[in-house]
Design a protein around this nucleic acid. Structure first.
Length: 827
RNA sequence: GCGAGAGUGGCGGAAUUGGUAGACGCGCUGGUCUUAGGAACCAGUAUCUUACGGUGUGUGGGUUCGAGUCCCUCCUCUCGCACCA
């Protein structure tokens, strides 16, 4: 027995130190080498890493190491999504400064990540809160402003009077502030917007080209963008010069319109109701609706309500007078904020019409049915043929859509129209810990961008974050007081900061040249490294982050910094880490601390288990006993190597041409394992099955060399198997393998050793178990040589005793032979 | 409600193109060694049956020589969107 045991702590420290001091994983652009850019979503420096990070970064590291062994020049960077609200909350709670808190967290977490043995090029590390980073973001902002892709707009926001701050929707709980519990009020506020809608069409169309993305994510993006085609039609308003413009996807139903609904905050309402008895009523209604929407639980549907504005619109096709209602289910943000209501063919309109006793008129008849206006119990929203629609009667709905739209177009009261659900991206945040928006307000010249040479507008650090949560920038004269770049007069800086999603929208590109000082991106570096070949992160970012990053890529392209259209060629969305069937959370008390595990078992074991327990895209159920199993396996491999050190340390030579059975079995298994591990990683990143294959090889190794083995196996075959195990396992448990690689006499790093090829001849089975079925049921088995003749197989199976029993005296109808697998006798 | 995905032992999970269901691991049972072992190793472990054999991949049907896999019905769960005109 060899007394040496697996001292993971010493091994891991040794290799981590080596990798760090030697900068083993530092890379440079080299056009002679094929590149591979592997990126995991960078973390918010919240304080400590959690199991989700462990899983995400382990998966990424395996791929990075695998690609490196395949000879790629691998860019694998790490950094920090360092701006954000938690830093401000922590600053209040601990009476510290957001910057101090953030940078301390970064230091701590960097240590944790290094303790996992992740193969990053740490020279490319970046933190988005540093002016060297966000200055380029400010430059983008100005350039986009000049192109008209950034604009200011007044919108309604959630305002907490006590905290003097704007709240995001998710910070409003039951209509109250999450921090102080006071009620939240709507308030009009000026904010800056990125014109992402300008790119809606391209963002949608490119979804079809993202072959390396999960269909689920693409579906979510498509839905989010929400393109719908239809028509925009102007309705005259009785007694007014203004027109009421609506958007509809069902122009074919226009002859069935019996009223109009508009959003409670539609700009025409005050004009329509001015001086009438309805004026107060609609105002009240608008206010009540707004409050109700804020308070309502998003799960339950709001009852449809409305109030008559007192005015009528004229249907341009029929001349009918249609009462205009303000309705709570019509959204000002979508379309034109006004719709024609066709109760017979729209469920919402149907419910509304029933409630307020408005007529219902069927104009679409589905095939083989007859709908009656007075007897239908719900709207019919499907296709059909038009009735009671003047000259359009008889057309089917599809034909009618274009015919009716064309009519509107030629008579100048409407046109074909495409509407998107996607809205422009509001990026103003009334917060301190973010990138300052580089704009200046001047009473004489209006709003002016900060001149390029004055960038960056740095975030002042001589501030205290107040309990209220109010941004100190608003009152910090030394920050906001400035001169107007145009007239030189007194100016006031914008004191809002940018949404932190802006930083994470382009960090992937900056990694290619993190120290570049001439501009945001170095053209050569970007040309070599981009796009990201494989991006890995949680599915919770399927919409916002990924959509913004795609948008930013197109913006940077159109500003001339890039030539790619899409940032991430392949996307892997890994599942959550759960325990006891639910997400880990402090309140449930089921949180597993990676530090504790690493201390107890070592990083390699933790990595191994998180890869083994489930395929990456699925949720991973954490199991402490399972971790022990992973640890046991590594010990098993370690012990074999230690016990056979004299064999393994010998000068390497190739396997002998003639082998005994045990040797051939091991040799075959070795090559089958190489084949399987390679294809499992390449195919779907199914590390769990790759690991199980390596476990099988290890079991075989013990079996053929153990006490029960009948014949001794050649040293070369054992060496070959052990080398295969170490090589195949090395992307997953790098310290462990590197150490044993060195111990067995190798002088070069395993990390850069070429990934092994398998020998197809060696992997081929020479004897197979043929299954004999009678009427589809397994009745016998035969050991035969691979590639045996069909006729011989048939004869052999029919001769089988057990098979004979089942055939008896029945007629043999058919015999099906599946090569090297089975034979089915049908009687 | 709409959209997407998933239902396999006690558990996590395996099963090219339809071709031996349950690989690998956890747990459990028995054993070996040991002062002891919650260490290590060996054997077993879907289920019913004494056995022969039967039954089994959420439900019910279908296609097929053969279905976890393909088609239809229903059920359950997860995720996303949710008055988007």
């Amino acid at each position: 027995m060899n007394p040496e045991t697996y001292d993971f702590a010493a091994i891991e420290k040794k290799w981590q130190d080596t990798w760090r001091t030697e900068k083993t994983f530092k890379v440079n652009a080299d056009t002679n080498l094929k590149k591979y850019y592997l990126l995991e979503m960078f973390p918010y420096p919240s304080g400590r890493i959690h199991m989700g990070h462990v899983r995400n970064y382990t998966i990424g590291d395996v791929v990075a190491r695998f690609k490196r062994m395949q000879g790629y020049n691998v860019l694998h960077p790490m950094g920090w999504d360092a701006f954000g609200l938690p830093a401000e909350n922590a600053a209040i709670k601990n009476n510290t400064h957001p910057a101090k808190w953030t940078y301390e967290n970064i230091d701590y977490m960097r240590n944790q990540l290094q303790g996992m043995g992740l193969s990053y090029d740490w020279d490319r590390e970046l933190a988005t809160c540093s002016p060297e980073y966000y200055r380029w973001e400010q430059l983008f902002f100005i350039k986009l402003y000049e192109k008209g892709l950034v604009y200011p707009k007044v919108t309604t926001v959630n305002w907490c009077e006590t905290c003097q701050t704007v709240l995001a929707n998710e910070q409003v709980i039951d209509g109250c502030c999450w921090r102080c519990d006071d009620s939240v009020l709507p308030r009009e506020m000026n904010g800056w917007f990125f014109k992402i809608t300008e790119y809606a069409e391209e963002l949608l169309a490119e979804c079809d080209n993202l072959k390396g993305w999960p269909e689920k994510v693409l579906t979510m993006q498509r839905n989010w963008i929400g393109k719908s085609t239809g028509a925009q039609i102007d309705f005259d308003i009785e007694g007014h010069d203004e027109k009421l413009t609506i958007f509809t996807t069902r122009p074919d139903t226009i002859f069935g319109a019996t009223f109009m609904s508009v959003a409670p905050d539609h700009p025409l309402i005050p004009i329509l109701t001015q001086g009438t008895a309805q004026e107060e009523k609609t105002k009240e209604f608008a206010h009540a609706t707004l409050l109700e929407k804020q308070r309502q639980n998003p799960d339950d549907e709001l009852e449809k309500k409305g109030v008559f504005t007192g005015s009528y619109a004229i249907n341009p096709y029929t001349g009918d007078k249609l009462p205009i209602y303000a309705a709570n289910f019509v959204l000002m943000e979508y379309g034109t904020g006004a719709v024609m209501a066709v109760p017979a063919h729209d469920q919402r309109d149907f419910e509304f019409a029933k409630k307020y006793s408005i007529p219902i008129k069927v104009v679409i008849q589905p095939l083989g049915e007859k709908l009656e206006s007075d007897s239908i119990t719900e709207a019919y929203e499907g296709p059909g043929n038009l009735i009671d629609s003047d000259t359009f009667s008889g057309l089917d709905s599809e034909q009618a859509k274009s015919a009716i739209t064309e009519y509107a177009d030629s008579h100048k009261f409407g046109k074909k129209q495409t509407t998107f659900r996607l809205r422009d991206w509001g990026i103003s945040r009334q917060r301190y810990w973010g990138a300052p928006i580089p704009m200046i307000y001047c009473d004489a010249c209006g709003v002016q961008p900060v001149p390029e040479q004055d960038l960056p507008v740095t975030l002042p650090d001589n501030v205290t974050i107040e309990q209220s949560g109010k941004s100190p920038l608003h009152d910090l004269e030394s920050f906001y007081k400035t001169t107007c770049p145009k007239c030189g007069g007194e100016g006031r800086r914008e004191t809002d900061t940018m949404d932190t999603f802006v930083e994470s929208s382009w960090y992937y590109a900056r990694y290619s040249c993190p120290d570049f000082t001439e501009g945001p991106l170095d053209k050569d570096a970007v040309a070599y490294w981009l796009p990201v070949d494989q991006y890995i992160g949680g599915v919770e970012h399927a919409i916002l982050h990924l959509l913004y990053a795609r948008f930013f890529t197109k913006i940077m392209r159109d500003l001339g910094y890039l030539t790619i259209d899409e940032p991430f060629a392949n996307l892997l969305t890994q599942g959550m880490v759960i325990k006891d069937g639910t997400k880990m959370s402090k309140s449930k008390g089921n949180v597993v601390d990676p530090d504790v595990l690493i201390k107890k078992y070592g990083a390699d074991t933790v990595r191994l288990f998180s890869l083994f327990a489930a395929p990456p895209e699925r949720d991973l159920e954490w199991n402490d006993k399972g971790v022990e199993g992973a640890f046991r396996f590594l010990n098993r491999v370690f012990r074999f190597v230690a016990e056979n050190m004299d064999i393994l340390k010998q000068e390497k030579s190739s396997v002998p041409a003639e082998m005994n059975n045990a040797g051939r079995d091991l040799h075959r298994k070795t090559h089958q394992t190489i084949r399987k591990v390679g294809s499992d990683i390449k195919g779907n990143f199914h590390f769990n099955t790759a690991i199980s294959a390596i476990m099988e090889l290890t079991n075989t190794l013990y079996n053929v060399t153990g006490e029960n083995s009948k014949e001794p196996v050649d040293d070369e075959v054992i060496s070959e198997a052990v080398e295969a195990i170490l090589t195949l396992l090395s992307p997953m448990v790098p310290h462990f393998c590197e150490e044993l690689w060195q111990k067995t006499g190798h002088t070069s790093l395993l990390s850069f050793t070429p990934w092994p090829d398998f020998d197809p001849d060696a992997a081929k089975e020479d004897e197979i178990t043929l299954v004999i079925q009678v009427n589809g049921k397994v009745r016998g088995r035969l050991q035969v040589e691979a590639g045996c003749e069909e006729e011989t197989l048939k004869e052999m199976s029919l001769a089988d005793e057990k098979v004979q029993k089942y055939i008896g005296d029945k007629d043999i109808r058919k015999i099906i032979v599946v090569k090297n697998k089975l034979i089915n006798i049908v009687v």
